[in-house]
């Protein structure tokens, strides 16, 4: 019975190009329900592009994406998206509450007004991220970590089964980072599926159950302990050994032989 359920995310031979220059080639990926997947790779590897292509924000040149066995457009209420924080104009006249309510739009439908129930639910989402006291603050008056929490509260308000997050750890303080990790794990434990773009190799191993190593191609995808290997990382980061040596030195600082990790 369970085997017949459609997968939360199925990417088949996906190729994406920006102005005719391909940035992702033939990506194949199938993600099981309840996985917490980290997408890692060097700058310009197409991590954000992969997420945007899945969300239908960028049209792929080739291949398709299926979400719970359907096209993204049809399954839109089942996918939640957290864009990069830098992609937004933070001076826009909206409050934290307004932003979280935006997560309810796909449920409310065109031309409809936001209902009282949506408001109560949005307040709960803010509360869950410890941001309720800031609900009426203009979004630009919040700190970076607080802004990211508001973004995650909005994702919670979407009540999705599959979440795609673009660098949620970018520029946040340690407390917020911990709060985000806790949130990711609790969502995973509720059976949700999460794909998270991440750039910090040193924490990737402990945060995610599965990793997708990306550099224009999908280099590897699997359980973290199988994928987070010296060889595969080297292939992903293609000769940029500086990154690896940096990780190695960090491991030495933690008094572990580098080989035990890499």
């Amino acid at each position: 019975m369970k085997a017949t359920l459609p997968k939360p995310l199925e990417i088949h031979d996906l190729t994406v190009a920006y102005q005719k220059k391909p940035v992702l080639y033939g990506i194949d990926m199938e993600v099981e329900a309840g996985s917490l997947v980290g997408i890692i790779g060097p700058n310009g590897a197409g991590k954000s592009t992969l997420i945007k292509a899945v969300m239908g924000i960028i049209k792929p040149v080739d291949g398709y994406v299926k979400i719970f066995g359907e096209t993204t457009r049809k399954a839109i209420t089942r996918v939640g998206y957290v864009p990069q924080r830098a992609s937004v104009d933070w001076d826009f006249p909206v409050s934290a509450m307004d932003v979280v309510l935006m997560g309810r739009f796909s449920h409310a439908g065109w031309f409809r007004r936001i209902s009282k129930r949506d408001r109560i639910f949005a307040a709960e989402c803010l509360e869950q991220m410890n941001m309720l006291p800031y609900a009426n603050r203009q979004i630009g008056n919040l700190s970076g970590g607080q802004q990211q929490r508001v973004f995650l509260a909005r994702a919670l308000a979407q009540q999705s089964d599959l979440y795609l997050m673009d660098e949620p750890f970018e520029g946040v303080d340690a407390i917020t980072e911990k709060a985000i990790v806790d949130l990711l794990k609790s969502l995973r434990n509720q059976g949700k599926t999460l794909l998270v773009v991440h750039h910090d190799l040193s924490t990737a191993k402990e945060y995610f159950d599965q990793l997708a190593l990306l550099n224009l191609r999908l280099v590897a995808f699997g359980e973290t302990q199988d994928v987070f290997t010296h060889e595969l990382l080297q292939r992903t980061y293609g000769g940029k050994l500086t990154v690896l040596s940096e990780i190695g030195s960090r491991q030495v600082e933690q008094k572990q032989p580098p080989s035990a990790v890499l």
């Binding site: 992609s87 826009f92 932003v99 739009f105 065109w110 007004r113 936001i114």
Partner: peptide
């Protein structure tokens, strides 16, 4: 009046707006 929330969302966060199908 009709497109209040749609205009708000597409103005503030275009990529999120696209992701919810606006």
């Amino acid at each position: 009046v009709l497109l209040n929330k749609e205009l708000l969302l597409s103005g503030f966060d275009p990529s999120f707006a696209r992701s919810v199908g606006l």
